[in-house]
């Protein structure tokens, strides 16, 4: 990293925060962090059909219902 970048890092972070939901910051508290992780997990479950199917078997629900539950938690 070059010397000039050091002054730049805050603006880079801001840019990232604006662009990507869930990018952390220095004052992030435990709850916010956990919520972000949870939402990321839910989004990943919804996107990966085999995992949805796996949960659906475990809970004996339809895959559509599982997807709905995860979307509600998102």
């Amino acid at each position: 990293m070059q010397a000039s970048d050091r002054f730049n890092i805050n603006s880079q972070l801001e840019h990232l925060q604006a662009k990507y939901v869930g990018t952390g910051h220095a004052d992030l508290n435990r709850f916010e962090w956990a919520v972000n992780i949870q939402r990321d997990s839910y989004a990943s479950y919804v996107g990966h059909y085999p995992i949805l199917a796996y949960f659906a078997i475990a809970e004996n629900e339809s895959i559509g219902r599982e997807r709905y539950n995860f979307m509600q938690g998102l």
């Binding site: 990507y20 939901v21 869930g22 990321d40 989004a43 996107g47 990966h48």
Partner: peptide, 10 residues
């Protein structure tokens, strides 16, 4: 890439 919250594809 990947199944993320803010990347479309779903």
């Amino acid at each position: 890439s990947g199944c993320r919250r803010i990347v479309p594809g779903q």
